[in-house]
């Protein structure tokens, strides 16, 4: 599927100008003050590790954890890549906040009709054939928008041409089953606050190992319980019958003499 969009984030090119956050805030009509962490009013933020700036935002996973845990399907993965949120379906169970391996969704705790907020991957712009607001605003090309396959090739090319400049890894290529945000970095990702415990298996597989057994439990369990009932029921019937027979025999015995 070539339609799938992605963004390549090259940490060596980012100068920390925060233009991405400003553009994002403008696009989403959020208050324009500069923020250091993801919040209800910052769908993207730059965190600084030594001399490097790392863009945080929703990774728009290929097999999204949040989409799998949502009991009502309020979160969906769109074909073009974005993980979209439907506030009219949301019941507010907050399982997505609990489960997201990147700690992305933020909750409107102070509202009495709370919603989650997170990066929307400019889904409405993508639908019009435009690129994301942040990638458009990036002055150095540190954030580049495009087709996922092409960007993966591009990232591999950059690493291959300048092996001294990058660590040989594209974060997001296969992590948690692949994401729409691809990172290349001059230092190992573990030093930049990327969780080293997340493997390549999509997180929803962990749940599926248990959920897939539900039909078996129902069918095998139903038959087994029914069988046990039949056997124990039969046994008590037989016992009752034998008892009545014995009683009759002794009565006949007593009657004879």
């Amino acid at each position: 599927m070539n339609q799938k969009k992605a963004m390549l984030i090259d940490l060596t090119l980012c100068v920390g100008c925060n233009a991405c956050q400003s553009a994002c805030k403008e696009e989403n009509h959020l208050p324009p003050k500069e923020e250091k962490y993801l919040s209800l009013t910052a769908y993207t933020a730059l965190s600084k590790y030594n001399d490097l700036y790392i863009r945080r935002m929703c990774q728009h996973c290929d097999v999204p954890t949040c989409v799998s845990v949502c009991p009502v399907g309020a979160l969906t993965k769109l074909e073009a890549g974005p993980v979209a949120y439907d506030e009219d379906k949301c019941i507010g169970c907050r399982y997505c906040l609990q489960a997201c391996p990147f700690h992305v969704p933020k909750y409107e705790w102070s509202s009495t009709k709370p919603r989650i907020q997170k990066c929307k991957f400019c889904a409405s712009r993508l639908a019009k054939g435009l690129q994301t607001a942040c990638s458009e605003a990036c002055p150095t090309g540190a954030t580049k928008f495009g087709d996922r396959d092409e960007l993966l090739n591009e990232a591999a090319r950059r690493i291959a041409t300048e092996p001294g400049k990058y660590v040989p890894r594209i974060y997001g290529k296969e992590d948690v089953g692949g994401t729409s945000m691809l990172y290349v970095s001059p230092v190992p990702f573990e030093q930049l606050g990327f969780d080293p415990r997340l493997g390549k298996t999509p997180m929803p597989m962990l749940t599926m190992s248990a959920l897939s057994k539900v039909p078996n439990v129902l069918s095998v369990g139903g038959v087994m319980l029914g069988g046990i009932w039949w056997i124990t029921n039969r046994r008590s019937e037989v016992q009752a019958f034998e008892a009545s027979q014995k009683e009759e025999q002794t009565r006949q015995h007593e009657d004879k003499p």
Binding site: V69, C70, T207, L211
Partner: peptide
Amino acid sequence: HFWHPLVMWNPHSVM
């Protein structure tokens, strides 16, 4: 919205 899980299913969700 407590009744939503009854009409909006997601078979992948434990919840």
